[in-house]
Design a protein around this nucleic acid. Structure first.
Length: 276
DNA sequence: ACCTCCCTGGCC
DNA sequence: GGCCAGGGAGGT
């Protein structure tokens, strides 16, 4: 599932190839993939001829700066991936958008479920978009415990959906949220505002190690292989998960069975013994 | 602040 | 054949 580690792996894969390149040609095969820009049909003309000056990331968004102050945005949704391939290589199924670079490979946006999207923004459009309301990046800008405590203070919503709220902290998705709460020994249904100082510190301390472990192991590909690395391989982090997907399996800390519940329509896995 | 919806492949 | 997975926007 593309959450922060998978998106960061994608960014690292793209950056060396895209930096300094310029865009030759754009093909949008599924119009639905271009969303959240006022006139989606403008995407090709906004991209063609522009040079790439930076390949960044904020939360789950890949942000590609272009000449002329445009920014090209990629969001992988839940089944998207970016493949770099020479034009004569065969295409994967569900190659929905192709962006060819001058004298270089094609950037192929493959996404069976089309929850991912792409757009090109002017600075004004960016400022008016939901991207401008993203919280601090969970890896690069993680707030210290006191600031995190302030963000959670007075919140009656369960801590897990708060972790998934991209305005609080950007980049955490359903799998890694469960892993962080397991590591911090916090029950996912605890109201955000009920966490004491020590608990907020534990949670804060769990964020980066979980994301970095995901990154080290190439991210998490579930059994449906909806998510793959840019080169088509499966991420290896699945086998190291402590909570997510482990219903009825022994907790790796206390050996009691992991339980599954649904919180805000999302599968939630936790150890009822050691997460309180 | 909550629920519904979008979409498709894989599984039962 | 029907259900499930889920990020994020939109509606209530």
């Amino acid at each position: 599932m593309p959450e922060l580690p998978e998106v960061e792996a994608t960014r690292r894969h793209l950056a060396p190839v895209l930096m300094g390149a310029s865009i030759a040609r754009v093909e949008v095969r599924r119009a639905r993939m271009v969303r959240r820009q006022e006139r989606p049909a403008d995407l090709p003309e906004r991209l063609v001829g522009r040079a790439i000056t930076r390949v960044g990331r904020r939360g789950k968004f890949v942000l590609i700066d272009l000449s002329g102050d445009f920014v090209w945005i990629l969001h992988l949704g839940m089944s998207g991936r970016i493949a770099l391939a020479d034009p004569d290589e065969p295409e994967a199924a569900h190659t929905n958008v192709v962006v060819a670079l001058h004298g270089g490979p094609e950037v192929r946006f493959v996404d069976p479920r089309t929850f991912g999207f792409t757009a090109v923004y002017t600075p004004e459009e960016y400022a008016a978009s939901s991207l401008a309301r993203l919280g601090p990046d969970a890896l690069d800008e993680l707030p210290r415990a006191p600031a995190l405590a302030r963000a959670l203070a007075g919140r009656s919503a369960p801590i897990k959906p708060l972790l998934l709220d991209q305005r609080v902290v950007a980049g955490i998705g359903n799998i890694y949220a469960d892993e962080m709460l397991w590591r911090a020994r916090l029950h996912p249904a605890r109201p955000g505002g009920s966490l004491d100082r020590d608990e907020v510190s534990r949670l804060r301390a769990a964020v980066r190690p979980v994301l970095e472990a995901g990154l080290r192991h190439g991210g998490t590909s579930l059994d449906d292989l909806a998510y793959l690395l840019p080169d088509g391989r499966a991420g290896e982090y699945l086998s190291r998960l402590r909570a997510y997907g482990r219903e009825d399996l022994p907790c790796r800390r206390c050996r009691n069975p992991i339980r599954r519940t649904v919180l805000r329509q999302r599968s939630t896995f936790f150890c009822p013994e050691c997460q309180r």
